[in-house]
């Protein structure tokens, strides 16, 4: 991997081009979701911005205000395009998933727990891998995914938010790139959220790829 000496700063054109790349990846993930639910998924323009670790942590405050309980899955991606993905379900969006899929996982004990985790892992992995790999392939950057990991299953948001994004990374003082994608299932008010954080060490390569695309 290329070593980094200069801190990248994303200009408006870079963010615009990257937004279009993310848009295409989001479209693929939306299509996959629509097939899984035999329904229609409303897609919105993804929110993309440069962000520091400290600011990323502030997102959690917003999550608390939006939902009393949270289910979340974290997945890391590595290589030339690296970072991590959080798929976050509020209590209402998780209930909708269960209802649409006809999935009764309310059984208590180990069986119910395993079913809940499987539902979250499977769906999150599909969305995360589709989005990430599609972004990386358009940028022509190598990328691999680690297995997804459950962070929370219907836990009170105030109990999990402080640790939601994991321990502070080594790049915490640098700028990362934050992508926020909301998926709205047709007929349901509660979206679920895909947060992709692209690590600072990938950003020069991302910028270089974008520059190539723009020429």
């Amino acid at each position: 991997m290329e070593s980094l000496t200069n801190k990248p700063s994303f200009c408006e054109d870079d963010l615009d081009a990257f937004g279009e790349i993310v848009n295409i990846a989001m479209g693929q993930a939306g299509s996959l979701l629509a097939e899984a639910f035999s329904g229609f998924v409303h897609l919105q323009v993804p929110n993309i911005r440069t962000i520091k670790w400290e600011e990323l942590q502030k997102i959690t405050d917003n999550l608390i205000s939006k939902s009393s309980t949270i289910s979340a899955v974290r997945q890391e991606f590595m290589g030339e395009f690296s970072g991590f993905i959080m798929v976050i379900y509020g209590c209402a969006s998780y209930a909708i998933l269960r209802e649409i899929l006809g999935f009764d996982d309310r059984e208590s004990g180990e069986v119910g727990k395993r079913q809940r985790e499987e539902l979250l892992l499977e769906l999150s992995n599909s969305l995360a891998s589709t989005c990430t790999m599609k972004i990386a392939s358009q940028l022509k950057l190598q990328c691999g995914l680690k297995p997804p990991r459950i962070v929370a299953v219907e836990q009170p948001s105030k109990d999990v938010v402080r640790t939601l994004f994991g321990p502070e990374p080594t790049w915490s003082l640098e700028q990362a790139l934050q992508i926020d994608i909301l998926f709205h299932l047709d007929g349901h008010d509660f979206p679920f959220e895909l947060l992709i954080t692209v690590s600072p060490e990938s950003l020069p390569l991302v910028q270089k790829s974008i520059a190539r695309l723009l020429t």
């Binding site: 295409i24 479209g27 693929q28 329904g39 229609f40 998924v41």
Partner: peptide
């Protein structure tokens, strides 16, 4: 011309 490749989006 769209990245929203859902069949229902196309039909719509």
């Amino acid at each position: 011309l769209s990245a929203d490749i859902q069949t229902k989006a196309r039909e719509k």
